[in-house]
Design a protein around this nucleic acid. Structure first.
Lengths: 253, 253
DNA sequence: TCAAAAGTGTTCCGCATACACCCATGC
DNA sequence: GCATGGGTGTATGCGGAACACTTTTGA
């Protein structure tokens, strides 16, 4: 067996390996009116001009992937510091996903509390929240393979809720148990028993921290306000099993 | 807000976006002598010449990521059809992980039964199995950020065993319950109760299929031979929750 | 007969599920 | 008072953990 020119790096005299444009795409999810929503832009250029697509753009030289995703999000929403939890989802391509050539994209998942998207001028790609359900049932079309990426992102979000404290990433800094439950119900598309959810959420050590404050809703008894406990906050990124073990089970299958 | 030249694709008149060399790296895991092993090559070229590294190489034009990983594995092991389950793990870079510049790598995870690696000639990078424990405890050094990638891969493998039937990917086509249990014990680094594991494995609908054959070991009663049930085989790649629900729990935390 | 490993039965208990019930607010 | 939602108590049952016990081979 001989050494292929593509095995590891080669001396300068060897032909250079193929180079690819690399983009980051972001599946930004949030809860709006009890339903899961995704941030989409309307493309201004060909291909797929006028079609909805995930926000994203090219990775710059010497730039990290998550940093690139964060930068693109800020640029396309007009929001300096986008809130929520951002993590890498997976890579797609480079073959056969763009009509103009090989483009590798690294998709990211943002689980965020609802934040207002700044309306851009008419010459900029306009970002806005769209119900995920409208993409799933086919009433909204997405450019490129973004439908597939969205599917994967939603599936990832669903499973994240089971064994990680990241459901709270959809809430603000402080939230009630009912608000947290609404997140689980929206993402999983199910109803959960309020009483049992309350016990599980408050009873899991290292998950929630009582702020001592109260939240007055439209009706009914005021609810206690919670925040993420430091332990859960620290473990947000890592593949931890420290909290929510055994996991919060999503019903059925 | 104006349109950045990096937002989406630009007309030909705009400057081209940065292009990156893209590699695929493969963390090939298997069980040898009851311990988790990883496939490593010894680098023949700078940088990290003489250091152990994950097998991998550059993605070709118009090539898919998993296909590239499969091709590189075949090239560097001399094995035409590498067995086991191959999936994408995640992407690393492009910033700050290679002394010579920005290289994006897409890491992959192979969970495979033990297969012999063909000894390459002295001029080729030689692939061989090494105990994962020897990397973890620092007695083996890896090139680039491959230590980090290995850590992530092992963690992924651990969690895969919990809720997917992919533990069987470490076994051959047919296997006994004890062999399957040895996989779980090696990956998780724990001991499992043989009796309870047997009940859980055989009792999970859609997981295992009895071949009717028997396997004679060194001592003791012969064990029944099983294979993956069709349902589990089909769901191998997808984020399924069809089998192993509730999951096989790994002890403690 | 004994060792060793396969496989079954049984007990215990934590926790998910379901739901009755009480608490605290606005109207 | 009544409606509405927050929060607690409690019974039931599934399934994981632990382990006694039987089965089937080789030596």
């Amino acid at each position: 067996m001989t050494i292929s020119i593509y095995d590891g790096f080669m001396p300068d005299s060897y032909p250079a390996p193929a180079r690819f444009p690399v983009t980051v795409d972001v599946v930004a999810l949030t809860i709006l009116g009890g339903a899961l929503h995704v941030l989409l832009i309307t493309r201004l250029l060909e291909p797929f001009r006028g079609t909805l697509a995930l926000p994203g753009g090219f990775v710059l030289a010497a730039e990290d992937l998550v940093a690139a995703a964060r930068r693109e999000l800020a640029e396309e929403t007009g929001v300096e510091q986008v809130p929520g939890h951002l993590e890498q989802l997976g890579s797609y391509g480079p073959a056969g996903r763009d009509p103009r050539g090989d483009v590798l994209t690294v998709a990211h998942l943002l689980m965020a509390p609802n934040f207002p998207v700044l309306a851009a001028g008419s010459d900029a790609e306009h970002a806005a929240w769209y119900p995920v359900g409208n993409v799933m049932d086919g009433s909204l079309e997405l450019a490129f393979d973004h439908r597939q990426i969205l599917d994967d992102a939603v599936e990832r979000a669903k499973s994240k809720l089971e064994y990680s404290p990241l459901g709270a990433a959809f809430c603000g800094e402080e939230f009630t148990i009912a608000q947290l439950r609404a997140v689980y119900e929206a993402v999983w598309g199910t109803r959960l028993d309020p009483r049992n959810f309350h016990r599980k959420a408050t009873g899991t050590p290292g998950f929630l921290e009582d702020t001592g404050q109260m939240f007055m809703g439209d009706a009914g008894r005021p609810a206690a306000l919670f925040r993420l406990a430091p332990a859960a906050r620290a473990s947000a990124g890592q593949p931890t099993r420290a909290v929510l073990n055994p996991p919060l089970m999503r019903p059925h299958g």
